[in-house]
Amino acid sequence: MHMADALVSPSVGATMWAASMGLAAYSARRIEPEVAERKVPLMGVMGAFVFAAQMINFTIPVTGSSGHLGGGLILAILLGPHAGFLVMFSILAVQALFFADGGLLALGCNVFNLGFWPCFVIYPLLFKPLVGRQPSRSRILAGSMLGGVLCLQLGAFGVVLETLTSGISELPFGTFVLLMQPIHLAIGIVEGAVTAALVSFVWQARPEVIDLAAGERTGSMPSLKPVLVTLGIVAALTGGVLSWFASAHPDGLEWSMFRTSGSEELAAPADGVHASLAGIQERTAILPDYDFAAAEDAQATPAEEGAAWPAVRAGTSLSGIVGGSLVLLLAGLIGMSLRLLQRSRQPATP
């Protein structure tokens, strides 16, 4: 499951972009030119392979529905963690751009959810130690299954956290987790089975491919320190935002209810330098438009909560509706007149 732009808040989007770009820069630096010389073409075709393999559907036993390959783990296995991460980044970028899976702002989240876990956690800490230098059928199966399931579980949990921190969706934490994790258990089992099928096929048909990919075993094993540092920064950033919320509003559903009260700015007359300055300050806050001060007040005196309630944004008042429709009409008119202008110019400049 991908995060979508529509569900992401700027702070979460930007934080995850920073994390993913940081990891990408780190991975790119870790692939030395001598290795890159050989890996760059393989990275290109393997990324494209994931797309091509997604065209081949297969039947999932029992359910009868069809599934396809996600790719993070297989890329880490075949290309090593750093190259695998960069390839996953590129795949998700193309999906975001051309298939509108997710979106540009949510790309950072998606790269982290679907690239970070398989490449920097599951592969070095689980798959490699388990399958090791003497792979066998059962080891490959166990490593891939377990790895696939864990990747998807961690990824899905990432989606939950990012969505909740963004606060656009109303789903409370508990419900969302109960919804996401079991679904992704199923998807994870499929991903694991598929990865196992692929790895064991390649291992039997052309063992040197896997050997070669693992060839930089000693060299390309990610040193965990910079990864952990990046992760720490991300944790601090998201954690900071999270705890800020959590302290004020213990429950997910409650947060969103408080947020509706964040419209003092409209209740207060919009004139006066002080008022507009306050407005600007509020709007440029990390999570704009949510009036934390008001929320805290409300917490102190719960009775006031109801009073602050209905004053949602101007978008719902009469003037808001009239203004909104007019603006849409205007946008349409401007677009149409531009097109007419172009048409009338066309004959002059063929």
Binding site: D5, A6, S9, P288, Y290, A314, T316, G335, L338
Partner: peptide, 29 residues
Amino acid sequence: FLLTVVSFSKYDIAGLTPLFLYPAVLLTV
């Protein structure tokens, strides 16, 4: 543009409408 869009409050509808001017202009020009 993306940052501006997602920075609006979650209940905002009318406030987002002027932003349609951007795709409308890009689309035609």
